[in-house]
Design a protein around this nucleic acid. Structure first.
Length: 916
RNA sequence: GGGGGCUUAGCUCAGCUGGUUCAGAGCAUCUGCCUUACAAGCAGAGGGUCACUGGUUCGAACCCAGUAGCCCCCA
C-alpha cells in the first residue's frame, strides 16, 4: 500500500477518540489501584472554547494520560460552572432581543428561560474539548447548579452561619451598575486611567473678613467626582495643615444643593494631594465612609441602581452619572465655582464581568468573616507555605500569602436570580433565620431563634426592585414574634465562587448523604491546573473549603499556566481579533499539532505568546514521525542469515546506542515531569525522536537503497519506534495511537492509551560513540570545501583506541561515504586533517586541499589551545585555588591540562610536517 | 503608595547548592543540497560585554549592594 507523504490528522483523530470513548478508557471507578485525580476548572456553562482553555486542558490531559499509562486509576472530572453574573447577563441580553424585560417577568419565568438557554448551549464547550483529545471521564460531568451541588452550597452556607463565620451586615460594598449587583473585592479590576481633577470652591457661610482669606470667598476642594457633590456632608482638612488651621469648625456651602456643612479635620488627609481639602461623601467612598463613621456624619446616597442620580440628590435627578459629571462641571464653571482642572492618573475599579465602573455603596449583604475563618483554619496558609500544597512556579506562594495577610470579608450575596438562593428567611418585620427549608425556618421562629432586623444606618431606600416583595420594616424593638405567618426567602443568590470552592469535593458527592466512597478514594485530588488570575477567586477558596468541610487539602499541586497572548504580547481578545478560533486551528493543523504548539513555549507560570509557527512546528513534527513510520513500513525483510555479520553487528550496535540515548532522555523527561516542566519534557522527546531516532538511528540501520533489512534489526526498529511513541503519547495522543496500531498491523498488545510508561534507570549502559563525531566532521569538511557527498573519501584514523572506531566502521562508511578506513598508517603528504578529541583523522584528497588554509586553520586552533592551557595553568598554579577548590574540580582541571597538552603536541607535529 | 518578579543569541526561554572547553535549546537567519521516509525535508554554519556599576571569592550569568528599564499583584 502506498502511504501518503503527508500525515493527515483529520482522518485519524475522530476515529481514535471514538475508540477510546467506546471502550471506556477514560472512565474511572474506585478500585485497589492508586488514584490520580484532576478536577477540571469548570468553564462557564455558556462559554466557548478559547486559547486559554486549549492550553489549560492540554496540560491536564498530558498529566492525566501519563498517570493512566503509569497504571494509576486516572480520573479527570469535567464540568461547567453556572457563572451567575455572566450567564444572567447573557440571558438578560437574549431576552431583551426578544423584547422581554427582566423586570416584567417573574423570577420563575426568568429561571425557565435561563435553564432553556443553558440546556441549549451548555454542552458546547465540553464537546469542543473532545476535539482536543481531552480524556475526561465524561460520565462524571457535573454542573455547579445541578441539584446535588446546589444542596451542597446550601449546607455549607448553613454550617458556616452556625459556626458564626457567615453574617449579615451593612457595609460598604462594590456595586456594579450594569450588572445591578454587588461584587466581591476580587471581582473589581482596578485600571489606571486619565482623570480630570476639578477644583471646586465651597463658599463660606460667614463672609466676614476673618474667614474671607481669598478672593474666591471659600475653600477650594480638588475632586475627580463632582457628580457626588450632592452627597457631601463635610469638608475635611489635615489638623496639621497650617493653611487651614484657622478654618476648622467653620461652615461652608455645598454647591448645587446649598447644604451647609462643617470643616472638620482628620489625620487621614494627605496635605500634598490637590488642595489638601477633601469633600467628604460617605455614601460613595470607602475612606470618606470611615471619616463619616468617626465624625458621625450623615450618609447621603445620591446614586441609583443603574448609576443614575437618585431622588435623594435633589438635583440632576435621573441623569447618568457620567453625563451628570459633565453637566455639573459645565454649570459650576459658568458660576465660577470650578475655576480650574488638571489631568491626573488614578485607578478606577471596573466590574470584572460587565466592565462598568464600580460604585462604592453602603448596603446590607451577607459576608464571610475571613479573619475568623483563617483563625479557625490556619492550614489555609500554612499548607501552602510548607509545600504540603505545592505551587508551580513557587513564586505564587508570596502572592497567596500577601492576599491572606490582608484579607477582608467576602461579600457573597448577589442581586441576581441565576444561582443558589440564599437560605435565609424573613418575617414581615425583617427578623430572620437561616434554614434549609421554610418549615425549618418556621420552627426556628417558633423557638424564638431568630435575629432582629439589620438596622441600616445608611438611610438607604432598599433599592432593588426584586427586593420589594420583602416588604421589610426596619425596626429596632425587640418584640418577639410567636406566630410568624408570612416568611419570605431572601431574594438574593450566592456568589458563583461560593459554589466553585466546593468543586473538588462536590463532584465526588462529598456533601451527599451516603458512604462517600468516591470522595474517600479520589480526594484530595492530585493536581490542579489553572491560571494565576483566579488564585484568589478559586484556588485559595478551595483550600479554605477543603480544610473547613473535609479537614484536608483539596489538591497537592497547583500548576499555574500563563495567559495566552499574541506575539506582540497583547491579550487575546475578540475586539482585537487576534485570537485564532481553536476549532479552525484543530481542523487545519490537527489536535496533536495544536497541542504541541501550545506546549512548546509555555513553561509553568509564563505567558505563552501564541504564534502560528509553533503550531506549524507541531504539525511538522507529526509529519516527521509519520515518515519515520513510512520508512520502516517500506522495508523488505530477510532472515538474519541472509545478510553479512558486519551488518548484523552494526545494526545491533546502533540499537544499543539508541537504547542509551533513549534511557538518558527518559530520565530527563521524568525529571522534567517531576518539576512540572512539561515544555522541557516535550522538547526532550522532540529531540530524541527527531535527532537521535530519525537523523541517527534510522540512518544507521537503513539498508542501502534496494536492499532488504534483516528481521532482528527490523524488530528492533519497530520496538524503538514504539518506545518513542509511548513517551510522546500524553502530548500527542492521536498520532501515537494510530501509528502504534498500524505498526503492529492493527493488533498491538494493548492500545497505546493503556501502554505502560517507562521508568527511570540509574545505570544507563554507556556506548562509546566518539566515532560518530567523525561523521559530523567529514560532513562539515564536505560542506566547507564544497565537496559533494557523492564523492567517497578514504580515511585514516590515528588513535590508540582503534577498537572504538572499528565497531562503527559500517556506520561511518554509510553515513559519511567513506570507502576505506586505515588505522595509524603513515600520514600521506597532502591531506585534510582534523582533531577528534585527542585523536587525529586524515583525509587524503589532494584536489581539494588548500594548503595555506589548512595551515591557517591549524594555527588558529593551536593559538586557542595555548591560550586555554595558560588559563588552566593560572588556576593550577594558584595556591588558593588548589587549597580551596574541591578535589574533583582540581582533578578536572588537571585532566583539561593534559588533554590540551596532547592536542598541542599533535597540532605542532602536523604543522611542521606540512611545512616540510 | 505596598508587595512580588523579570532583564542571557533576532524571537521565546533553560541555566539546580558559584567550578565539565559554560555561555545553552527551540524557532528564525545564512550556506549547500529535489541524496529513493519526510523540501512540512537533509547536511552544515554564523549569532551573546549574561541590563549597568561596584563588592564578596582562588573562581560570578549564578551571591551581595546600588542604578536603569520592563511586567504582575494588591490598595
Amino acid at each position: 500500500m502506498e502511504l501518503d507523504k503527508h500525515y493527515s490528522p483529520q482522518q485519524v483523530e475522530d476515529k481514535w477518540y471514538s475508540y477510546w470513548m467506546d471502550n471506556g478508557f477514560f472512565d474511572s471507578t474506585p478500585d485497589e489501584r492508586e488514584p490520580y485525580t484532576i478536577v477540571m476548572p469548570p468553564p462557564n456553562v455558556t462559554g466557548v472554547l478559547h486559547m486559554g482553555h486549549m492550553l489549560n486542558n492540554t496540560i491536564q490531559d498530558v498529566l492525566i494520560r501519563k498517570a493512566r499509562m503509569e497504571g494509576k486509576n486516572a480520573c479527570w472530572v469535567p464540568g461547567t460552572d453556572h457563572a451567575s453574573i455572566a450567564t444572567e447577563a447573557k440571558v438578560v441580553k437574549m431576552l431583551a432581543e426578544k423584547g422581554i424585560k427582566k423586570s416584567d417577568i417573574s423570577r420563575d419565568e426568568f429561571l425557565g428561560h435561563a435553564w432553556e438557554w443553558k440546556n441549549k448551549y451548555g454542552g458546547i464547550i465540553l464537546d469542543q474539548l473532545k476535539k482536543l483529545g481531552a480524556s475526561c471521564d465524561w460520565k462524571r460531568t457535573r454542573f455547579t447548579m445541578e441539584e446535588e451541588l446546589s444542596n451542597a452550597v446550601i449546607e455549607v452556607f448553613i454550617k458556616l452561619y452556625k459556626d458564626g463565620l457567615i453574617y449579615r451586615g451593612t457595609k460598604m460594598v462594590n456595586w456594579d451598575p450594569a450588572g445591578k449587583t454587588t461584587l466581591s473585592d476580587e471581582e473589581v479590576i482596578f485600571k489606571e486611567s486619565q482623570s480630570n481633577l476639578y477644583y471646586v470652591t465651597y463658599k463660606f457661610t460667614d463672609q466676614t473678613k476673618e474667614t474671607f482669606n481669598n478672593e474666591l470667598g471659600g475653600i477650594q476642594v480638588a475632586t475627580t467626582r463632582p457628580e457626588t457633590i450632592m452627597g457631601d456632608v463635610a469638608i475635611c482638612v489635615n489638623p496639621n495643615d497650617e493653611r487651614y488651621k484657622d478654618l476648622i469648625g467653620k461652615t461652608v456651602i455645598v454647591p448645587v444643593v446649598n447644604r451647609v456643612v462643617k470643616i472638620i479635620s482628620d489625620d487621614y488627609i494627605d496635605i500634598a494631594f490637590g488642595t489638601g481639602c477633601l469633600k467628604v461623601t460617605p455614601a460613595h467612598d470607602e475612606n470618606d465612609y470611615k471619616i463619616g463613621e468617626k465624625h458621625n456624619l450623615e450618609i447621603i446616597d445620591v446614586l441609583d441602581d443603574d448609576g443614575r442620580i437618585s431622588e435623594r440628590a435633589g438635583a440632576y435627578v435621573g441623569m447618568d452619572r457620567f453625563a451628570c459629571r459633565k453637566q455639573i462641571v459645565k454649570d459650576l464653571e459658568e458660576q465660577g465655582i470650578i475655576t480650574k482642572s488638571e489631568q491626573i492618573k488614578n485607578t478606577v475599579g471596573h466590574s470584572e464581568r460587565t466592565d462598568a465602573v464600580i460604585e462604592k455603596k453602603i448596603s446590607t449583604q451577607w459576608f464571610v468573616n475571613m479573619q475568623a475563618y483563617l483563625k479557625r483554619y490556619p492550614q489555609v496558609l500554612s499548607a501552602v507555605m510548607n509545600d504540603e500544597i505545592k505551587f508551580h512556579p513557587s513564586k505564587f506562594k508570596n502572592v497567596y500569602k500577601h492576599w491572606l495577610d490582608n484579607i477582608k470579608d467576602w461579600n457573597i450575596s448577589r442581586q441576581l436570580w441565576w444561582g443558589q438562593r440564599i437560605p435565609a428567611w424573613y418575617d414581615e418585620k425583617g427578623n430572620y433565620v437561616v434554614a434549609k427549608t421554610e418549615a425549618e425556618a418556621q420552627k426556628l421562629f417558633k423557638d424564638n431563634a431568630f435575629k432582629a432586623p439589620i438596622v441600616d444606618n445608611s438611610n438607604l431606600i432598599e433599592r432593588h426592585e426584586n427586593r420589594d416583595t420583602l416588604n421589610v420594616q426596619h425596626s429596632t424593638d425587640d418584640e418577639h414574634i410567636s406566630n410568624p405567618v408570612n416568611l419570605t426567602q431572601d431574594v438574593d443568590v450566592l456568589d458563583t465562587w461560593f459554589s466553585s470552592w466546593l468543586w473538588p469535593m462536590s463532584v465526588f458527592d462529598g456533601f451527599k448523604e451516603g458512604d462517600k466512597k468516591d470522595l474517600k478514594y479520589y480526594y484530595p485530588t492530585n493536581d490542579l491546573v489553572t491560571g494565576p488570575d483566579i488564585i484568589f477567586f478559586w484556588v485559595a477558596r478551595m483550600v479554605m473549603a477543603g480544610y473547613a468541610f473535609n479537614g484536608q487539602k483539596p489538591f497537592s499541586n497547583v500548576y499555574f499556566t500563563g495567559i495566552v497572548r499574541d506575539k506582540l504580547r497583547r491579550k487575546m481578545s475578540k475586539s482585537l481579533g487576534n485570537s485564532p478560533e481553536p476549532m479552525d486551528l484543530i481542523a487545519k493543523f490537527g489536535a496533536d499539532g495544536v497541542r504541541m504548539g501550545m506546549l512548546l513555549s509555555s513553561p509553568a507560570g509564563n505567558d505563552i505568546l501564541y504564534d502560528e509557527s509553533n503550531v506549524e512546528q507541531g504539525r511538522n513534527f507529526c509529519n516527521k514521525i509519520w515518515n519515520a513510520y513510512r520508512l520502516i513500513a517500506g522495508w523488505q525483510i530477510v532472515n538474519d542469515e541472509a545478510v553479512t555479520a558486519d551488518i548484523i553487528a552494526s545494526n545491533e550496535l546502533a540499537n544499543q546506542w539508541f537504547e542509551m540515548k533513549y534511557q538518558i532522555a527518559v530520565n530527563d523527561i521524568l525529571n522534567a515531569f517531576e518539576d512540572y516542566k512539561l515544555s522541557e519534557a516535550l522538547m526532550s522527546i522532540y529531540k530524541l525522536i527527531w535527532d537521535d531516532f530519525c537523523s541517527w538511528y534510522l540512518e544507521m540501520v537503513k539498508p542501502i537503497y534496494g536492499q532488504p533489512i534483516n528481521e532482528s534489526a527490523l524488530a528492533q526498529a519497530k520496538n524503538n519506534l514504539e518506545k518513542v511513541l509511548v513517551l510522546l503519547h500524553p502530548f500527542m495522543p492521536f498520532i501515537t495511537e494510530e501509528l502504534y496500531h498500524v505498526l503492529y498491523d492493527g493488533k498491538p498488545e494493548q492500545p497505546m492509551i493503556l501502554h505502560a510508561y517507562p521508568v527511570s534507570k540509574n545505570n544507563v549502559v554507556e556506548v562509546d560513540d566518539r566515532a560518530l563525531q567523525i561523521i559530523s566532521e567529514i560532513r562539515n569538511i564536505r560542506n566547507s570545501k564544497g565537496l559533494s557527498p557523492k564523492i567517497a573519501f578514504e580515511l585514516i584514523i590515528k588513535t590508540e583506541q582503534e577498537k572504538s572506531y572499528k565497531v562503527w566502521e559500517t556506520t561511518i562508511s554509510k553515513l559519511a561515504n567513506v570507502s576505506t578506513i586505515h588505522y595509524n598508517i603513515t600520514k600521506p603528504e597532502k591531506c585534510l586533517t582534523s582533531l577528534i578529541g585527542t585523536d587525529e583523522i586524515f583525509i587524503p584528497f589532494a584536489e581539494a586541499i588548500d594548503e595555506a588554509a589548512e595551515m591557517k586553520k591549524m594555527q588558529e586552533e593551536l593559538t586557542y589551545l595555548e591560550g586555554f592551557l595558560k588559563s588552566v595553568d593560572v588556576k593550577l598554579n594558584n595556591d588558593r585555588f588548589v587549597s580551596n577548590a574541591k578535589p574533583d574540580v582540581i582533578e578536572k582541571e588537571k585532566q583539561k591540562r593534559a588533554d590540551a597538552l596532547e592536542k598541542i603536541e599533535k597540532l605542532k607535529k602536523s604543522l611542521t610536517q606540512n611545512n616540510n
